[in-house]
Amino acid sequence: MMVKVTIDGIEVEVEPGTSILNAARKIGGDAVPPAMCYYSKLPGTGGKCRTCLVEVAAGSAADPRPMPKLVASCSTPVQDGMVVNNKTSERVHNNRGGVVEFLLANHPLDCPICDQAGECHLQDLGYEHGSAKTRYEEERRTFDPIDIGNKIKLHMNRCILCYRCVFVANQLTENRVHGVLHRGEHAEISTFIEQAVENDFSGNMIDVCPVGALTDRTFRFKSRVWFLKPMEAERSCTKCCGKAVVWMFGNDIYRVTARKDKYGEVEDIDGKTAWLCNDCRFEHKSANDWNIAGPRVINRHSVISQGKYATSMEKPVKRIG
């Protein structure tokens, strides 16, 4: 039995137990709340950032009372006959703006020197909901950047504590040496005594990080992402699927990432999430290492998709060769 739910006036049928967020993703477009911590490929994520707050105008057909508080759409299951307001609710807009203000309060706003700029979810959110001026007059909290092994850099100043990387560590690696230390605004991502995350799949933490807190040391400061051309590429690999996006300038590969969907999540390919192994990500930066199929369509709304190369709006233009 499917359940019916209405989001911003659009009705959709989903499996019972589906979250409001996933029901909204089935509708697509403006009905979809932003999600900074939920990651559909990492069970257990969600509920933390509160950017996905929505208003439930009617709880269910059986009990049509509105819910008094806004709810986190990523971790609230739909009920049959539920009516939800996202984009159409002023209250949601205001409170989401509040959440964005909180996320930016201690953020260093160092986008000009951050490798994530251009593909950062916090930038997008700040652009949509933030105000041009900050009301935060206090000293921002700071941490020293630390190396997590020799391939990953942690800039704790930029972290929004979405816990996604912790779940990667939990779910992709056998020995978690990565977690959260301290409480409140002193909470920080840590590898427990700065122990390196030694695992073939640790690089995926970079891909799930919604901001520039975890970046690829093999790509640091090499180029702005919007100067690079994303190309779909493949190599045969014994550890992972070997299906990646290589980011090129001329004939040089500057960085390798997983293939991501419009929500910024690593895609499923042949029914499996296409996580990349560290070997493919960090050790294969020569065009000869890869079979390059053609330009990768970046259909996530962001600075890069405004760029000069392929977007979902225009047909990909073959630029290479």
Binding site: G47, K48, C49, R50, T51, G98, V99, F102, L103, A105, N106, Y136, E138, R141, I160, L161, Y163, V180, H182, R183, G184, E185, H186, A187
Partner: peptide
């Protein structure tokens, strides 16, 4: 420190 409004709001 789990959710943004409380983590940032209480400190602020």
């Amino acid at each position: 420190g789990q959710c943004s409004p409380c983590r940032e709001g209480t400190g602020w």
